[in-house]
C-alpha cells in the first residue's frame, strides 16, 4: 500500500489563476514557544466553494485561520487574498471568530453588534442613519433575530449569539467569509438557520471557509474539505478527499470504525 502524500508539503504550489483564488496560504508555520501548531501548510480555497477545515483538537485549525488573517504572527509563510496581501483586500473578507473569544457581558445590544459590521461604511465618525439601521435589520432578518435587536447580548443563548455574529459578517457584504467553529455549542434550529444562510451565500457566488468540528455533517454542508493535523493532510472536493484513509491520517487512527461507517464516506 503506498501512502498518498499531500502534494503540497513544501512551499509555493503551482497554481492556475493565482489571482482569482479567494485565499491562498503558502508554507505557513505558526508555533507557540517551541511547539509548532501549524507546520508548513499550503492551502488554496477555490472561488465559490464551501470548504470545511477539519482536524482534531489542537490541530491548528483556528490558528491557521488567524495566521492567514494576520491576527497571529507566523514563524514562516504568508497568505494572499484574491491574489494580493491581506491589507489591500480587507473590504472583501468577513471574519466570524469563535464565540468564546468575546466577553458577552459587554454592555451592547444586538443591533449595535451588527452595526459594527458596517464600520467600513460608517468610518470613525459617521452617524448611524436610518439606512444603516435598515441594512442591519435586514441582516438580522436573514438569521431570524429581528425580534432581538434591542436585547443586551449577555441575555442571549449560545445559538442566538452565534447568529448575531453571523449577522455582523453579513453586514460586511464580503466576498470571502471565514468562520471559526460556527456550529459549536448551538441548538439544532440555529444550526439549520446558519447553514441555510451560508448556502445562500454560496449560491450568490461567495466563498465560505469554516473551521468545523462535526464530522457527521461535512458531506451535507460542504463541498470541499481541508484536513489538517499540524500539517496538511489533504485538500479537495468532499467526494474525493473525505475518505476513511485520510481521516485515519488526520485523527491518528483514533476514530473507531463504527464512527467511520456512520460517516457515509466516499469509497477509497
Amino acid at each position: 500500500m503506498s501512502v498518498g502524500l499531500a502534494t503540497n508539503l513544501g512551499v509555493a504550489p503551482v497554481m492556475q489563476d493565482a489571482g482569482a483564488s479567494p485565499l491562498v496560504v503558502r508554507g505557513m508555520t505558526v508555533s507557540y514557544g517551541q511547539k509548532p501548531v501549524v507546520f508548513s501548510v499550503d492551502m488554496e480555497i477555490k472561488n465559490g466553494s464551501m470548504t470545511a477545515i477539519i482536524g482534531p483538537n489542537g490541530a491548528g485549525k483556528s490558528t491557521l485561520l488567524k495566521a492567514a488573517l494576520g491576527i497571529v504572527k507566523p514563524l514562516a509563510g504568508d497568505a494572499l487574498v484574491f491574489g494580493q496581501p491581506l491589507r489591500n483586500q480587507r473590504s472583501r473578507i468577513a471574519y466570524v471568530p469563535q464565540r468564546a473569544s468575546v466577553d458577552w457581558d459587554f454592555p451592547t445590544r444586538v443591533i449595535d453588534v451588527v452595526l459594527m459590521g458596517l464600520y467600513r461604511e460608517l468610518g470613525l465618525l459617521g452617524r448611524v442613519r436610518k439606512g444603516h439601521i435598515q441594512k442591519a435589520m435586514a441582516c438580522l432578518d436573514r438569521v431570524g433575530m429581528t425580534d432581538f435587536a434591542d436585547r443586551q447580548i449577555g441575555q442571549l443563548s449560545g445559538g442566538q449569539q452565534q447568529r448575531v455574529f453571523l449577522s455582523r459578517a453579513l453586514a460586511q457584504e464580503a466576498e470571502l467569509y471565514l468562520l471559526d467553529e460556527p456550529f459549536a455549542g448551538v441548538d439544532a434550529a440555529t444550526e439549520k438557520a446558519i447553514i441555510s444562510v451560508l448556502k445562500g451565500l454560496r449560491d450568490e457566488g461567495k466563498t465560505v471557509v469554516a473551521v468545523h468540528h462535526d464530522l457527521s455533517t461535512v458531506g451535507e454542508y460542504f463541498d470541499r474539505v481541508f484536513l489538517i493535523n499540524t500539517n496538511k493532510i489533504a485538500e479537495g472536493p468532499v467526494k474525493e478527499t473525505f475518505t476513511s484513509e485520510n481521516l485515519d491520517r488526520t485523527y491518528g487512527g483514533r476514530l473507531a470504525t463504527g464512527q467511520l461507517d456512520q460517516l457515509n464516506l466516499a469509497a477509497g
Partner: peptide, 14 residues
C-alpha cells in the same frame, strides 16, 4: 521547509 520544497521541486519564495 526549504529541503522539502527542494525534494518536491517546488519554488522557494522566501
Amino acid at each position: 521547509q526549504g529541503l522539502l520544497a527542494l525534494a518536491q521541486e517546488q519554488p522557494i519564495y522566501e
